[in-house]
């Protein structure tokens, strides 16, 4: 039971009039993961989040959160979720403390001192203690976002859903948000959408990429960063490398070598089928030839941005 995914969607589809915002989404979000949900504008990220929260109804398909159906058991679903909307809106006459108290009371019936303590802890956590008793209408966008993160986690939710949590924060604010997310990983699952790929690469363990309402990739972040063409090693050589190349090419775990030469340096991209064998033997096979020196060696990984752009372009740009 504990290994069951926190979120499971099957064929989840949402159509607005003639526009298919989400097409047959099959997704599983593992427990205690920080799950990055990526995609260009209009890809269907926010629609997915709103479907999970019962704010919109699916046109087809089903989804469960902690085993509760998102349509039939929406209150039970929402009891376990803390949600930060993309553009958080609050009652402007309420103070930050009153806003958190109002939110907390949907989840806790009391006692009042314990709720107040929880509210105070949350204000401290998001750095709003000194503005706690000011009306929200005077808050900057960064302060509103901090309050949004506070209200999303004031109930100690099992699942935190954040829609673009760092979008309007300065670098310090972003760092704090990422720190909060990492801290929550131990006891909660974080499902968040973002455009800031650096952040995803830094904190996420699993990533899903949505484009034009379709899921085009879902994988652990390490796997995604390896690229779609499998594991490869980059080797920079000096000297006569032809013989070393043919010896490497003859290894049973080598599938392909791309070579390029520039300024007397030869660079290989060696694709392999067996990572363990490659890491144990590749360098030794090359250095067996004394006419060759290795200037650089490493496993080839991609930046998330590169992977993201490649996948989105392969599947057609999602911008409407």
């Amino acid at each position: 039971m504990t290994d069951a995914p926190v979120i499971r969607t099957q064929n989840l589809t949402k159509t607005y009039k003639n526009v298919r915002a989400l097409r047959s989404l099959d997704l599983e979000v593992p427990r205690n993961s920080i799950f990055g949900f990526l995609g260009p504008n209009g890809a269907g990220k926010t629609t997915t989040i709103k479907l999970l929260l019962g704010l919109v109804r699916p046109t087809a398909g089903t989804a469960e959160v902690f085993g509760h159906d998102i349509v039939g058991d929406t209150i039970d679903v929402r009891r376990r979720i803390g949600y930060l909307p993309q553009e958080p809106r609050y009652y402007e006459h309420l103070t930050a403390r009153e806003t958190l108290r109002f939110t907390a009371r949907f989840f806790y019936q009391g006692p009042a001192p314990a709720i107040e303590r929880r509210v105070a802890e949350t204000l401290e956590l998001v750095g709003l203690s000194d503005r706690a008793d000011r009306p929200v209408k005077g808050f900057s966008s960064g302060e509103r976002q901090r309050l949004g993160i506070g209200q999303a986690q004031v109930s100690n939710p099992d699942l935190l859903i954040l829609d673009e949590p760092a979008a309007s924060l300065d670098p310090m604010g972003r760092r704090d948000v990422l720190a909060i997310m990492e801290r929550l990983r131990e006891r909660a699952t974080v499902f968040y959408s973002t455009h800031i790929l650096d952040d995803v690469q830094r904190v996420s363990d699993t990533v899903a990429i949505l484009n034009r309402g379709e899921l085009i990739a879902r994988a652990p972040i390490e796997e995604l960063l390896v690229g779609s063409e499998g594991v490869a090693y980059s080797v920079v050589l000096r000297g006569e490398a032809a013989e070393a190349r043919s010896r490497v090419a003859n290894q049973p775990w080598v599938s392909e070598i791309h070579a390029s030469t520039e300024n007397g340096r030869t660079e290989w991209l060696v694709r392999v089928t067996d990572t363990e064998a490659a890491e144990a033997q590749l360098l030794r096979v090359i250095l067996a030839d004394e006419r060759v020196n290795v200037a650089a060696f490493g496993r080839r990984t991609y930046e998330l941005e590169e992977v993201f752009m490649n996948l989105v372009e392969e599947n057609g740009n999602g911008d409407d």
Binding site: R79, Y108, P111, R117
Partner: peptide, 19 residues
């Protein structure tokens, strides 16, 4: 113990009404 948060127990169509 007396300061432990008690989860809201309301169910049904008036969940959240008091708040």
């Amino acid at each position: 113990t007396s300061l432990q948060l008690q989860p809201a127990s309301g169910h049904g169509w008036l969940t959240g009404f008091v708040n």
